[in-house]
């Protein structure tokens, strides 16, 4: 991880640390204190002993605030509330361990960014901002991802929380853009159980949450086709995430978010060799 302060995360920069990294030949200007005299004695050449430097984490949370994020069915939590809880929890954990957390909210007409900071007061700002979210309009997720990719100067963890009901090709390009900038991307795909199962008994008028268009349909007639389309969508997004080496997490909003966080953190620990 690349950060401006020493932290708990392994950094690609070499520095003073207890963990040996490699030898390299001495060049003019190197700190002579870092010369390995034992190596000089053995080889009659000057070598500099490099150590891994620990640095801080920049975590950037992109939360989709389009109208579709307001969806919930039955007693389950709305998608946006679920996203808020995950984003807030992860931001808290990030700042709590001395890392920086930033936030990007996006929908069609709004793109609000809070740059990453490590201060506790900054965390409060993130909480207030999350609390004030009112989802509406079409999604601006792809644009927000491109913006984040461009604006964050150093490698960071980019956590995207959305239903990903957007153009898949554009979304895929945004993912590649983030990966090109060496960012570590984690996708939280939030769906309601009903959106997957499509379990309706009688005719319904379905009103689009983003543009208010509607359609009257007999669920028993279209259920199979709908489920097939949803299945293809999930397979597609999972493939695109895999192709860009992004972490993909399909989450139904009827699950406790604590479980989601636990699984996510354990998964990252196993990937990064013991440090999240």
């Amino acid at each position: 991880m690349v950060g401006s302060a020493a932290g708990r995360h392994r950094s690609p920069h070499r520095g003073s640390s207890v963990e040996f990294a490699e030898y390299r030949e001495y060049v003019a200007g190197d700190d002579t204190r870092r010369l390995d005299w034992k190596a000089y004695a053995r080889s009659d050449r000057y070598y500099i002993k490099e150590f891994e430097a620990d640095t801080n984490l920049r975590a950037y949370f992109i939360v989709d605030t389009s109208g579709s994020m307001q969806f919930s069915h039955g007693e389950s939590m709305t998608r946006i509330d679920y996203a808020k809880q995950i984003a807030a929890s992860l931001a808290y954990l990030t700042v709590d361990q001395g890392d920086a957390a930033g936030l990007s909210l996006c929908h069609e007409k709004l793109h609000l960014e809070i740059p990453p900071r490590r201060r506790a007061s900054h965390l409060q700002q993130i909480f207030h901002t999350l609390n004030d979210i009112e989802p509406k309009g079409n999604t601006g997720l792809v644009g927000a991802m491109h913006d984040v990719a461009e604006k964050i100067p150093q490698r960071a963890l980019v956590v995207v929380l959305s239903d990903f009901f957007c153009d898949m090709e554009a979304f895929s390009e945004a993912l590649q853009h983030l990966r090109y900038r060496k960012h570590d991307v984690a996708l939280f795909h939030l769906l309601d159980r009903q959106e997957i199962d499509f379990h309706f008994e009688r005719p319904h008028r379905f009103v689009d949450m983003e543009d208010d268009t509607s359609i009257v349909a007999e669920p028993s007639l279209i259920a199979d086709e709908y489920i097939q389309a949803m299945k293809a969508f999930l397979a597609d997004i999972r493939t695109r995430a895999y192709d860009t080496n992004s972490s993909y997490n399909l989450i139904t909003t009827d699950r406790p978010y604590e479980d989601i966080l636990r699984d996510f953190l354990i998964d990252r620990l196993s990937k990064k060799g013991g440090k999240a």
């Binding site: 009901f165 379905f206 689009d208 509607s214 359609i215 279209i222 709908y226 969508f233």
Partner: peptide, 15 residues
Amino acid sequence: HRTVQWAAMSFLLEA
């Protein structure tokens, strides 16, 4: 019919 707000509209139209 009942009216419901729906997010995954594109899949519904396709179905």
